[in-house]
Design a binder for these strands. Structure first.
Lengths: 157, 157
DNA sequence: ATTGAAAGAGTCTCAGT
DNA sequence: ACTGAGACTCTTTCAAT
């Protein structure tokens, strides 16, 4: 069950705004949403206490820092019971920025960010294949990112 | 080529810190990195001008708002030349938060965030299959997110 | 719950080094 | 290029509604 029942339209408007730009001031956001800065403040405090929102992150263009190579990796495990022990090993590899357990052909699915193909090869061959329990992997190199955006959260219909 | 040559160790330390927590004050970050708040400020301004960093986003736990269903979707296109027209249609579907062009079996790869399986079915069946040029799709539903983290950017070795 | 104003904290600018 | 201090803006608190 969700805590959605305790959030109203104003909360969702604040969330959608701050999800895309957390630098907007309470005064400016309040003006947009026709309430005072104080109201924005108490709502944000409430949403933080409900763990719906938590901190902010700076957007970084890692491409400009030389990280030009994103790949997705599907993992076949020898046994499903090896999930946790393999996940623990994968977490040690800094180039892996995300791990999901999924349905379908693969047991696990990774997102990997590297500087170049050479580094990706090192991660796949030297690091991944070394982990006990991984049967084989399938790699999809991202040629280009079409788009990436935040979800727009809406009320239940 | 990257603009990496114009960034030093201090820049990277600032980036790594603010990528994870953009709310830290310049004074506090300066203390950690043994420089003044003013220096943090000019470095951040420089990084913004270089387009390496750009704005901040609030972290939102969309699960608590009822968005409990993440899926990855591989797309087979009838012809590769249909990339752009199909991408344009996909961008109109708000549940699709990310699109990548990739190597391998699929032409495109999507990340979709929905409230439940019923909404995912609607997106896949009613929206996706309706788009001209999509031959077929393959869906991987995320059962659980193992982890998700920001990349740690480092100097060239 | 929301407001408006005062107190506190952070950002931004700039002259000096 | 970095620092420290002053000006400015934003967050936070709170009494009143």
């Amino acid at each position: 069950m969700s805590v959605k029942l305790n959030t109203d339209k104003l909360d969702l408007q604040i969330i959608n705004a701050m999800m895309n730009d957390a630098e907007i001031s309470y005064a400016e956001l309040g003006k947009k949403l026709f309430v005072s800065a104080g109201t924005i403040h108490v709502r944000i405090k409430k949403l933080q206490e409900m763990n719906i929102i938590s901190g902010t992150r700076m957007n970084v263009n890692v491409k400009l820092l030389g990280y030009d190579c994103t790949a997705f990796v599907g993992i076949y495990l020898e046994k499903s019971s090896l999930y946790d022990v393999v996940a623990k090993e994968l977490k040690k590899i800094p180039e892996i920025v995300r791990l999901n357990y999924i349905t379908g052909s693969y047991s696990m699915f990774l997102e990997v960010v590297c500087k170049d193909i050479a580094q990706l090869r090192r991660v796949l061959h030297d690091e991944l294949q070394k982990i006990k329990g991984i049967e084989r992997t399938e790699t999809f190199i991202s040629l280009e990112e079409g788009f990436s955006r935040t979800l727009v959260v809406v009320d239940p219909e």
